[in-house]
Design a protein around this nucleic acid. Structure first.
Length: 799
DNA sequence: TGGCCTCGAGTTCA
DNA sequence: CTCGAGGCCA
């Protein structure tokens, strides 16, 4: 090829440039590829070879120059000859109506025509063409001065390096938005993830970050797209009469204009477009944050003119934002009821989907690491499920210098105790227990909460003060509230003293004319007094035993019937309760083994708190067979015990249980008898060792004793409700009663309630507006009852 | 042992 | 609503 004559080479170079430009336009603007990728590559390679042989033929508009030159050190400034405008915003239909009214007044037209288009969420830029050649591209910047990003823009195939047409204008500035299409964004991110590289936070940041790369090669690798929507300086190019025609003309020059651009008439037309685009927002390939309305006729635009920097002839009608950027002012650590430390991002207040968000949980240490959130970072915030604020990701490009990874504090921020994090556990905990004021406070709050003891009139701040202000004057020294039991010893004078201390701290001198807050105090005391006869389930939940929430509390209450029996229960017995395994059982046993907790319970009892008692559940007691006790003992010992426990098959346990029914009886068996029951030499020997240990003897005797008590106290006749064994799911809203009420009546008949539909569900009660659970029931062929059928069922059994 | 499923615990804001 | 982890069944 190097042997070709320069003129022949020049002609070939021109032809190659033309073909590549045509294909770029087809592929990137029209989205209809004309030739295969390999064919395209072949053209490009040939062009590069020719240019290498004839350097004098290399021109600025050559596609080989899209990625050219070396990395820049900084961007130079570009002053926009014609400033790049910002648009006024409309956030409501009223704002849009006001805009239309002003246009009507200024133009005298009843139904002015508008050009409407999606407001792309990207980066506004201006492209300058001189005599048809792309010479410079700049960001919007502050509108009057931007940054020169020509080298990066050259790498965008949707930006023509030379505009089509035989008589190019002397000067043409085309303005528009650089965006990263959502599909390309996702593809880029999954590829980056596979390579273990940083992912982009969102398409908008992807576009902005990509254009601000100093090395154009990086930009070239990013899937960016340019959409034109306006002009800047124009010389030697006739302007059409309408904006909509202008968009057509830009298309003809080789630019892409967003395909959703339309014309609309009057306010109704605008709002219809707004609604239509809003409905299809998630299916568009580009993120948008609203739509733009422009007066279509350019002469009317000129008539309307500008207010400061925004045109009066155009407005952006914004969708309510669902994701916003803000700054993490600090990462603080909260201490929960169980001592769990939770990092929380304190955010610069920002509107997200209609509310001001200032906090967002970061869950735990791992989560902070994974997202690498740091104080001072700019982050993207979203409302998960449109409710709970959540930090989506960090905008790395905006990270201030000198920031460092967030560290979990080694000491509890509330009490200074050591922070411990167990191996392979995600949560870190304050080891201070009830020494920690935060834990004390949260424990009291939990105790009073609606689903626990349901004590009204105790807000978070009041509890805070009860724990920190010395307002109890019973003893020699004024004291703070220490335990939940002390709530029941509060008197009117204590509460008034608390209020006085609060006022004193706030610097308020009590106004003698004003009534003392007796009403509040009386109501609170009444509420406390009214909580003295909780269900056992509520009291258990209120105590705040680790791992014991509402569900577990209910199982425990149901199985044992009284607090004493639960407190006395060995891990082995606890594990036989449904849904209680080793971990939860140990947690419960540890709670009742702690003297401090027993004191609190004793104090509660002394104060008159008396949970309702019931007999042990017959079906639970029925499950306490000796073979099951042996299984349970084996599980607990082999997982944690210092003693070894023989690996014994279930069949051996069953054979053993057929002969003996207690640990005492088992201990009385000699080796030969054990062998006869299927225990092998080592297993039997290990069992003997265990039974000879004094503390084990005591423990096993305790289990025997409790099981004896439970058997004696359990109702002899198993009261089987007519619906026992049935699992019921309630969904939708009932008209005559609440779901809770319906649930209670069903449970009274022996039914078991569940939250989710599975093939084990006996039937589903579906009220009005039942959702996915009803669908699931239909899918699984589970019987569905409506409210009338439910009432009939209840009626037939309750009599 | 792995994969459900459910539960526990913590959290936001009007 | 989320994540994490415990329990249980295959």
């Amino acid at each position: 090829m190097t042997t070709e004559l320069p003129t022949v080479a020049a002609a070939r170079v021109d032809e190659l440039k033309r073909q590549i430009a045509v294909n770029d336009h087809r592929y990137y603007v029209l989205d209809e590829p004309g030739i295969s990728d390999s064919e395209y590559d072949r053209l490009m390679r040939e062009l590069r070879e020719l240019e290498a042989a004839h350097p004098e033929l290399v021109t600025a508009d050559s596609p080989s120059q899209r990625v050219g030159g070396s990395a820049l050190r900084t961007f130079s400034e570009v002053v926009h000859q014609l400033p790049m405008l910002s648009l006024g915003n409309a956030f409501s239909e009223q704002d849009a109506a006001d805009f239309v009214r002003k246009v009507q007044e200024a133009t005298g037209e009843a139904e002015p025509q508008f050009s409407v288009e999606p407001k792309l969420d990207g980066l506004a830029i201006s492209l300058r063409y001189e005599h048809g050649l792309f010479v410079r591209g700049a960001t919007r910047g502050d509108g009057s001065t931007g940054e020169d990003v020509t080298a990066n823009l050259r790498t965008l195939r949707s930006i023509p390096l030379r505009i089509a047409g035989d008589t190019p204008p002397a000067v043409l500035e085309v303005r528009g938005e650089v965006v990263m299409p959502r599909r390309a964004f996702e593809a880029f991110n999954s590829a980056a993830r596979e390579r273990g590289e940083r992912t982009l936070a969102n398409p908008r940041n992807g576009a902005a970050g990509s254009l601000r790369q100093l090395d154009p090669a990086v930009t070239a690798a990013r899937p960016l797209m340019f959409y034109a929507y306006a002009l800047g300086v124009v010389e030697g190019w006739p302007l059409p009469a309408r904006h909509s025609e202008l968009l057509q003309n830009l298309r003809a020059l080789g630019f892409s204009v967003h395909p959703e651009a339309r014309s609309a008439r009057g306010l109704t037309g605008l709002l219809e477009y707004f609604a239509a685009i809003g409905a299809r927002r998630s299916t568009l390939d580009v993120d948008i944050d609203g739509v733009v309305y422009k007066v279509d006729r350019l002469d009317q635009q000129a008539e309307l003119g500008f207010v400061s920097r925004a045109p009066r002839w155009a407005i952006a009608h914004k969708f309510p934002a669902q994701e916003e950027q803000t700054v993490v002012e600090a990462i603080e650590v909260q201490v929960g009821r169980t001592g769990a430390l939770t990092p929380v991002a304190r955010l610069r207040p920002v509107h997200v989907a209609g509310v001001v968000v200032t906090n967002a949980t970061l869950h735990n240490e791992n989560e902070v690491r994974r997202k690498d959130v740091r104080a001072g970072d700019t982050v993207i915030v979203r409302r998960a499920g449109d409710v709970i604020p959540e930090v989506v990701s960090v905008v790395l490009d905006a990270r201030p210098d000198g920031s460092s990874e967030w560290q979990l504090p080694p000491l509890c921020p509330e009490c200074g105790s050591h922070v411990v994090r167990e191996a392979d556990q995600a949560v870190a905990r304050c080891s201070g227990g009830l020494i920690c004021p935060a834990q004390r406070k949260e424990a009291i709050r939990h105790f009073c909460s609606r689903r626990a003891m349901d004590i009204e009139g105790l807000g978070s701040e009041t509890i805070d003060d009860m724990v920190s202000l010395a307002f109890l004057r019973g003893g020699a020294q004024p004291r703070q509230l220490g335990t939940v039991a002390e709530l029941y010893t509060l008197g009117l004078d204590d509460l008034l003293e608390l209020k006085r201390l609060q006022d004193e701290r706030a610097g308020i001198t009590p106004d003698p004319k004003k009534k003392t807050p007796t009403k509040w105090a009386e109501n609170l005391l009444a509420s406390i007094a009214g909580s003295k006869t909780p269900s056992l389930q509520r009291l258990l939940f209120a105590l705040g035993i680790l791992q014991t929430g509402e569900g577990t509390a209910k199982e425990l209450a149901l199985a044992f019937g009284s607090l004493d029996e639960i407190a006395a229960a060995d891990v082995v017995v606890l594990m036989m309760v449904p849904n209680i395994g080793l971990t939860v059982a140990e947690s419960i046993a540890a709670f009742f083994a702690e003297p401090h907790n027993c004191e609190v319970i004793a104090a509660l009892t002394a104060a008159g708190v008396q949970p309702q008692r019931a007999a042990p559940a017959a079906d639970f007691v029925a499950r306490l067979e000796f073979s099951a006790q042996l299984e349970s003992l084996k599980t607990s010992i082999s997982a944690r015990g210092s003693v070894g426990f023989p690996s014994v098959a279930s069949t051996v346990f069953q054979a053993t249980a057929a002969h003996v029914a207690s640990f005492a009886a088992l201990a009385a068996l000699d080796l030969a008898e054990l062998r006869a029951l299927g225990w092998n030499e080592t297993a039997a020997a290990q069992l003997r060792v265990l039974f000879e240990d004094a503390s084990w003897q005591a423990r096993l005797a305790g289990i025997d004793a409790q099981i004896g008590r439970l058997r004696r106290d359990a109702p002899q006749v198993v009261s089987k409700g007519p619906l026992s064994g049935q699992t019921v799911v309630l969904t939708g809203s009932l008209s005559g009663m609440t779901r809770d009420q319906a649930g209670a009546r069903l449970e009274a008949l022996g039914a078991k309630l569940s939250g989710s539909v599975s093939k084990k569900t006996s039937f589903v009660v579906a009220g009005a507006e039942a959702g996915s659970k009803l669908d699931k029931a239909r899918e699984l062929g589970v019987q569905v009852l409506d409210e009338a059928a439910l009432l009939a069922l209840l009626g037939s059994h309750e009599a």
